[in-house]
Computed example of a mutant assay.
Amino acid sequence: MTKFLLAVHVLAAIVAIGPVTVAASMFPPAARQALATPEDPRAVQTVLLLLRICRVYAVVGVAVPVFGLATAKNMGVLGDTWLIVSIALTALAAVVLVALVLPRQTAIAEALDEERPVGQGGDERATTVRLAMFTGVFNVLWAAVTVLMIVRPGSTTGA
């Protein structure tokens, strides 16, 4: 059962978290392009598509910690420090995505859809730069979790 849970956990991470990190990273430059050329419907459609990808895969991404916790329970490692740190980093990544990335993406997409300025005083560049920073933080948190999952201090795999 542990192997099955681990396989689903890893597949969920690849299938769900991968698209979110890529789409979220592509969003700020796509938004800058769309804001620079609002008359280009393809640029606006790209931003809307990237937002949809981020939203959908963020929901699907809930499977990653669910199966991760089930795997950890079966392996008897729920109290291990590396896992507790991974859980904390995963929770922090979720907060960054839900509280900082998705709302800013939504605001930019809505502004594009309504053809109105983005940010305070129309400072579109600063808005997309801040979004890129929060996206980078989200991606670094997931990278740290991935490293912890592979290295697993105290592991008996010899890694």
Rank of each mutant, 00 (worst) to 15 (best):
K3H: 15
F4G: 01
F4V: 12
V8F: 12
H9P: 06
H9T: 06
V10K: 07
V10L: 14
I14N: 09
V15P: 09
V15A: 15
G18I: 01
P19T: 14
P19K: 14
V20T: 13
T21C: 05
M26W: 07
F27Q: 08
P28F: 02
R32L: 11
R32G: 10
E39N: 08
E39G: 11
D40K: 04
D40V: 03
P41Q: 14
R42M: 13
R42C: 04
V44M: 11
Q45V: 04
Q45T: 03
Q45E: 12
T46I: 06
T46P: 00
T46H: 12
R52P: 00
C54L: 03
R55H: 11
V56L: 11
A58L: 08
V59L: 15
V60S: 02
G61F: 09
G61E: 10
G61K: 08
V62L: 10
V62M: 06
A63V: 11
F67V: 09
G68V: 09
G68T: 07
T71G: 05
A72W: 14
G76S: 13
V77T: 14
V77A: 06
V77R: 09
L78V: 09
L78N: 02
D80L: 09
W82C: 10
I84P: 12
A88I: 14
A88H: 08
T90E: 01
T90K: 00
A91M: 14
A91V: 15
A93L: 01
A93E: 05
A94D: 01
V96T: 02
V96L: 00
L97E: 01
V98K: 04
A99H: 04
P103Y: 04
T106I: 11
T106W: 04
T106A: 10
A107G: 13
E110P: 00
A111N: 10
A111H: 03
L112Y: 06
L112S: 08
L112M: 07
D113Q: 15
E114R: 13
E115L: 03
R116Y: 14
R116F: 15
G119K: 11
G119M: 09
G119L: 10
Q120K: 13
Q120L: 03
G122H: 03
A126T: 08
T128S: 13
V129Y: 06
R130I: 03
T135D: 04
G136N: 11
F138K: 00
L141Y: 11
W142N: 14
V145W: 07
V145S: 12
V145R: 11
T146Y: 07
L148P: 02
L148F: 02
L148C: 05
M149D: 08
M149S: 04
I150A: 01
V151T: 11
R152I: 03
R152C: 02
P153W: 04
G154I: 09
S155G: 15
S155L: 13
T157H: 05
T157C: 01
T157M: 09
T157R: 03
